[in-house]
């Protein structure tokens, strides 16, 4: 565990907590894409299938449980909670997530490190995580007015990706045989998707103005 990996995990955790805070205390999920949240739930479900069979550390298992639990509870809140679900921007959040899942599944069947059930699903989760933010970014673009918590949520998620790239660079130079092209390319694609959002986030922060995306 290096400082970049820890910082990445902590920003990831913080992003989830910010979203849960918004949903739990303000009882609102306005501006949050259910499609993206469902994709994350699928990402964690397929990636952490090995939770019972492969033990790395208490830290890892605990974080896996937190990410699984939080992603499914966010989906549950948005779909079934009587007040939260009324704040969901159903008509704007129309991205078809099947269009993301099918290509990711096909790609995972074609390009993987090992052709086993767990490994293909792990690879599928990497590809899907890379594009899972797209429905959220499309929703932001459509609603344009972004409240602070939603903006912070996406900012923290992007930060998590950035730290993971630093972690990979660090591990590549410090650990022998640490080469994972699939993870790196999927992670890089994912981080690049945030670039545009980051640009406007910093612009609004610099000018001390509310975050607004161009039409």
């Amino acid at each position: 565990m290096n400082i970049f990996r820890l910082a990445g995990d902590m920003t990831h955790l913080a992003s989830v907590l910010v979203l849960l805070l918004k949903i739990h205390t303000i009882k609102s999920c306005a501006g949050v894409s259910l499609k993206t949240q469902e994709l994350y739930a699928i990402v964690f479900a397929t990636r952490y299938l090995d939770i019972l069979t492969s033990f790395v550390s208490i830290y890892n298992t605990l974080m896996k449980l937190i990410f699984l639990g939080s992603s499914f509870s966010i989906v549950w809140y948005m779909k079934y909670h009587k007040t939260v679900r009324r704040t969901y921007d159903r008509d704007q959040d129309t991205f078809r997530h099947w269009f993301l899942m099918l290509p990711c599944l096909l790609l995972a069947l074609l390009i993987h490190e090992k052709f086993t059930f767990f490994e293909v699903l792990w690879t599928f989760s990497l590809y899907l995580e890379a594009v899972a933010i797209l429905p959220q970014l499309v929703l932001l673009q459509r609603t344009r007015n972004i409240d602070n918590l939603t903006g912070q949520y996406i900012f923290l998620l992007g930060g998590y990706r950035g730290f993971y790239i630093l972690n990979w660079i660090y591990r590549y130079f410090t650990e022998p045989h640490y080469v994972h092209w699939i993870t790196w390319i999927a992670g890089l694609v994912q981080t690049l998707l945030y670039a545009d959002f980051f640009y406007y986030y910093f612009l609004s922060w610099k000018n001390n103005k509310k975050l607004q995306l161009p039409a």
């Binding site: 090995d50 890892n60 990410f67 490994e119 972690n167 650990e175 045989h177 080469v179 994972h180 993870t183």
Partner: peptide, 10 residues
């Protein structure tokens, strides 16, 4: 690559 070390990340 060593698959096991890949899976020590989240």
């Amino acid at each position: 690559g060593d698959i096991a070390s890949q899976h020590d990340e989240l």
